[in-house]
Design a protein around this nucleic acid. Sequence first.
RNA 1: UGGCCGAUGGUGUAACGGUAGCACAGGCGACUUUGACUCGCCUAGUCAUGGUUCGAAUCCAUGUCGGCCAGCCA
Length: 602
Amino acid sequence: MSDTSTSPAAPVPTDFIREFVAADLATGRHRKIVTRFPPEPNGYLHIGHAKSICLNFGIGLENTGRCNLRMDDTNPAKEEVEYVDSIIADVHWLIDGWADGVLGLKLRGEGSATGTTDGELAAHHPAAVLPADAAGRALEPFFASDYFPQLHAFAVRLIRLGKAYVCDLSAEEMERYRGSPDRPAMDSPFRERTVAESLDLFARMTAGEYADGARTLRAKIDMASPNIWLRDPVLYRIRKIDHHQTGNRWCVYPMYDFAHCLSDYIEGVTHSICTLEFEVHRPLYDWILCNLDLPDPLPHQYEFARLSLGYTLMSKRKLLQLVTEKIVNGWSDPRLPTLSGLRRRGVTPQAIRDFAYNIGVTKHNALTDVAVLEKAIRDDLNRIAQRRLAVLRPLKVVLTNLGPDEVVECSATNNPEDPAAGTRKILLTREVYIETEDFLEVPPPKYFRLRPGGEVRLKYACIIRCDEVIKDAEGRVIELRCFADLTTRMGAENSGKKVKGTIHWVSVPQSVRAEVRLYDRLFTAAEPERDGRDFKTVLNPHSLEVLEAHLEGSLAEAVPEVRYQFERLGYFCVDPDSRPGALVLNRTIPLKDAWAKETAKG
RNA sequence: UGGCCGAUGGUGUAACGGUAGCACAGGCGACUUUGACUCGCCUAGUCAUGGUUCGAAUCCAUGUCGGCCAGCCA
């Protein structure tokens, strides 16, 4: 089995759903496992979807099965091709190199063939093609809309069986008739309509004879059921609007409950995994499949708890609001938990997969600490990111014993976690920048950076001593004059000399300027909507800070999506906003900072 | 006064009638040319009450708390 595994030491994950899968394999109920990831293309994917993707593709991968990507596009009013495209890109980004081998797609353009509407099963549905079998042919996701002809045929069959009827109740009337969880329902006056009449009416609905909302097709189940979803749920509604895949071909569209179970069935899905709120829909899922008298094996639905992460919002509706109200800059704003936002921020797919593995899969709602995500991000970046020196808030230091044009060559380790990454040259000059916070005139106890008369090591270079502090008219420190002890350079006679602090720096003439964007959590509260509060009351006004930083010269040719660790500062990656000579970097996440924690203690 | 689902350290999870374990967070220490990484140690838990059992986080009952369900959304 391919193993660019989720976590270095990770055994195969286990959870209650995987136990069902294993049991079904053991009993011979299924020989091949097929799952699916079925987003509605009405928004961008976020890290909550990533949890589902990792579960569904993980199960496919672990069992040499398959996981189909399917657009659950049964409501043209809310869906757009922009979302279809972003979903495809995000899924690939997240699974490539891991589970892309079990990604089930179909041949482009296949499946939207005509079907019958006379109650007979359409003969064909698109076959799932794995990348290994594509032979260079273009593939695309499955679409629930591909099955509209078959779905329609199934609906007709249900009417013929006396298990569905056309209802003329308005939406308001239907709401009244339905009752409520603790109040009984009333039968629709159209419930006992003859099969022939329903058949005729449904055909005319399909032909476009009636206005939106005028009639619906309903399942005839049990109006006395304590489960609302069994009180004759709507199966089809009239919607005279264009669909992003099927154009104006249809004016009746199936509801989620009708389309989903049958789409699963059509694709040969064995385990249909969704989130907890669909638990109450499961009896309906089963009812539809059973009452259509479909041959086995039938798919089964399993539910797990959706992800909720501290200090962020996960619902597509709320994310859409953040985007449309321009609280953030589009769906890929690095502060958003969208996959495109995380990608732009510099988070790796591996880190997201590790995160998904670490949080597990259960049936109870939990609030996951962002620290778990941050840990996964740092762990992966620590392994792969090359180190560079950069100064965010510069303080000029003049090394008084170096000549104006003197250049001292230093060797810097690219990645201490990966010796194969090698070394690079950096140049020490008379004028350098250090981080403003690395000098304090009157330092607190345990501060071991630079102070007047004190010593500190410039990383990869040498130890310097602060001889003089230059201030401006307001008394602010604007420059330090220091002595550079070149005998403490690597390889020199005093290279072993120890000082408490080592700080980062860049050469003034050798550095490049860049815009650096620092991100913080979008909200100041772990649960932005706690107790029904408006999330806009807890927006973090400092979630984005833009600085002009000075980077080591080797970064001049940095390209988007390459990730670096700026030593002692954090992980950064180049933003696509970058232009030649005008680099823009995003800070993915700062390094852990024990000193900041120490000082915060007061 | 409905139905369904759930409850294990601060947080997320494991244990499937037989030693409550792991991770994150937190604390202390070691190492360190990143106050990073790494390593060592520590803190801290079975919602409650009954019952079954030699033995219960696990099974049963009752209660408590939490989530979901009254779209022609998914």
